[in-house]
């Protein structure tokens, strides 16, 4: 049996404050597995941990506990610069965070791929003014056809954002206060605790 495209196994990330008396300020937990190529919609309020989740999957941010396996290989054991040959995070330049490197490169492995096969799009700019949005959506479908895993994180603000997510995504992750819930379709997503509050009026479009 071949390995799942992505397996997030008992992963947690804890941020603390204070040197002697450590106080937990944020905790993200995730445990899920995606076997095959698909387009996964990701939603959640600001500050809920969406970008942190993406950073942990692409290996730029080190988890406090658990592992992330991409096609069976633990991405956090791969040479830093080559992790984007497995999973690549597309974000706005202001979102880019840099993390200290934990181990020297010679102690780390080569990636199991030459080209990225997990693509995480973090709030791509969807504007209806120009036509680029159409090319972007076609590109997500092309990646999916090529057997890759696509994450599409959108913070819905307009009805057409919901329409795009409903028509493009084959399943959803909802990230809220550090917890990751999974739904197999849009109706399932609406049933997840907190989603209706988050979407407000947009929920029933």
């Amino acid at each position: 049996m071949s390995d799942a495209l992505l397996k997030v196994a008992g992963m947690s990330k804890v941020y603390t404050q204070g040197l002697l008396k450590k106080r937990q300020t944020f905790r993200l937990e995730a445990d899920f597995e995606i076997e095959e190529s698909r387009i996964v919609g990701v939603m959640g309020p600001n500050g809920s941990g969406k970008t942190t989740l993406f950073e942990l999957i692409t290996g730029s941010n080190q988890p406090t506990g658990g592992q992330v396996f991409c096609k069976g290989q633990n991405i956090h054991k791969v040479k830093y610069r080559l992790r984007d040959r497995m999973a690549i995070h597309y974000h706005q330049s202001y979102q880019v965070r840099h993390f200290s490197k934990v181990l020297p490169s010679f102690m780390l492995e080569k990636p199991n791929s030459q080209y990225p096969y997990i693509h995480l799009f973090d709030e791509p700019q969807f504007s209806t003014q120009d036509g680029y949005i159409g090319f972007m959506l076609d590109f997500f479908k092309k990646l999916r056809r090529e057997g890759r895993l696509v994450f599409l994180c959108v913070h819905p603000q307009e009805p057409f954002h919901i329409e795009i997510m409903r028509s493009m995504c084959e399943e959803f992750l909802f990230v809220n206060a550090g917890k990751v819930s999974r739904a197999s379709d849009y109706d399932g997503l609406l049933a997840v605790d907190g989603v209706r509050d988050y979407l407000g009026k947009l929920a029933d479009i």
């Binding site: 209806t128 003014q129 120009d130 036509g131 680029y132 949005i133 159409g134 090319f135 959506l137 076609d138």
Partner: peptide, 14 residues
């Protein structure tokens, strides 16, 4: 071919 894209057709550009 590019202009046939649904979003290009409905955008300002289209």
């Amino acid at each position: 071919e590019l202009k046939a894209n649904e979003w290009v057709r409905t955008s300002e550009l289209g």
